[in-house]
Amino acid sequence: MKNGWMNFFSGSVQVKVTGKGMERFLNECVRRKIDIWSVKRLGTESFSFFIHLKDIKLIRPIIRQSECKLSFMDRKGLPFLIRKSILNSGFVIGAVLFFIVIIILSNMVWGIEIKGAKPDTEYLVMKELEGMGIKKGKMQFTIMNVEDIQRSLTDNIDQITWVGVELRGTTYHFQVVEKNQPDPPEYFSPRNIVSRKKAVITEIFVEEGKPLVKMNDYVEKGELLVSGEIGEGGEKPRYVPARATIFGETWYKSTVEVELTTKFNVFTGNYKSKHYLQIGSLSIPIWGFGKHEFAEYREEEKDRNVRFLKWELPIGYKNVTIREEEERERVYTVDEAIEVGKKVGQNHLEDRLADDARVKSEKVLRQTTNNGKVKLEIYYNVIENIVTTIPLVQGD
């Protein structure tokens, strides 16, 4: 037979026929459309051939009507392999269970290593990991990805500046960089302190140097505030690195636009989850069949590959979460838009200012409404540190 694969799946049997009238037997098989192949003569009164497993019941009546005897020599094909597997089911089940156990153990967390952290910081990291569900014996599929773990630890633990997270095999490795202690005082060469912008002095504290301004003085940008040259009268001048904290009232102007009507998308809370078995680039759905009915939606994908011992297999699990969105419309009155504009303007200003600066007051200079937008020009009074330094050249 040419189609060997079909013979394998359906099963075939090699039989031996002995006796007189073998030719008549073969002709009767052909007449009854019984497939016979690989016919071999074994002697003067015997030969062998292959037939389909399903044709055995058709050949028995022919044997009874002839003077021949039939015996089975060999069996081939999937049905016999299945039967043999059933007879040896203990071994097969054991092998399958062993493979499943190895897969499960390869995808569990068996170790957590933390380097670069002091004992108290390491304790805080371990407590935070337990809160996130990361501990020994936990399946890796149920744990957030490495980037989310890193971001959560950095945000929630004040004692660390950065943490590196890496999953190698069944162990999570954490490299912690703790916040440094305050640096020792720096030593500077002689210098002057000048104003870095126009301001009215509101607070002055000089640690070292000769102050040249006082409270409520108006200063220009670049004006000398504290001199690093000390000495009066006929004394020989002494040059020091001027140190001072000087706050002044400065002024800023900001332009803000607020739309009276804004459209944006929000999640409704409805979602549909789909689960897939990932084999290479092929995704086979295993749960969450059917189409969703969301008109507007956003998809989130999470992929995890299966590990076998230290190797990563091209088999994985993919979870797709489809979240429903809907469009909302937000409408402000003019007064509400003005209040929002003030907050937006102040937030933008605070992003530009140092941490020790504060907004003293604000005033809307101009307000216009055009094309569905409110445009504000806002004037701010700010109290901030105005000092900057320049080198002092001796003899100036």
Rank of each mutant, 00 (worst) to 15 (best):
I386K: 00
N265F: 13
R298P: 03
P211C: 10
I143T: 05
K342D: 01
D396H: 08
E220W: 02
I103H: 00
K363V: 02
S195T: 08
E325P: 02
L53F: 13
G169S: 04
S281Q: 11
N305R: 10
E300G: 00
G90T: 11
L124I: 09
A199C: 10
I93E: 01
A95E: 01
V30R: 11
S106G: 07
I86C: 13
L42T: 07
I103V: 13
Q181H: 05
A95D: 03
I157P: 02
K375Q: 15
D35F: 14
I36S: 01
D217A: 08
G316T: 07
L26T: 09
N7C: 08
V213A: 03
E203L: 06
P190E: 11
S283T: 04
E377Q: 13
R298S: 12
I246E: 08
T262E: 15
P314D: 01
K318S: 07
G288P: 06
S10W: 06
I134E: 00
H275M: 12
D351W: 01
F91Q: 04
D303I: 12
N216Q: 13
M1S: 14
M144S: 12
M132D: 03
Y239E: 00
K236G: 04
T333V: 08
T171F: 06
I230H: 05
I378W: 00
R298L: 08
T171I: 15
S254C: 00
V240I: 12
F72W: 13
K127G: 10
E130C: 05
G228K: 01
V146K: 11
T268Q: 08
S38R: 13
K363T: 07
K118P: 00
V382S: 01
E207V: 09
S12M: 10
N156E: 12
W110A: 03
N192E: 09
I246A: 04
T268A: 11
K375C: 06
E336V: 10
D303R: 03
E128P: 01
D335H: 07
K54L: 14
V194T: 05
E113D: 15
I51L: 14
V101Q: 01
T368I: 15
K33G: 02
P241A: 12
G341W: 00
K272I: 11
S361D: 15
W5G: 06
L70N: 04
V359D: 13
W5Y: 11
T154F: 02
K118V: 06
G90N: 04
I62Y: 11
E324C: 14
V176Y: 06
G290W: 04
F80H: 05
R168D: 14
V200C: 00
R64F: 11
R151E: 15
M139H: 04
V101R: 00
T369F: 08
S283W: 09
R75Y: 15
L153W: 02
N319V: 14
E326Q: 10
L105E: 13
L349G: 07
G111E: 05
E23L: 10
L376S: 03
T161W: 08
P211Q: 11
A95R: 02
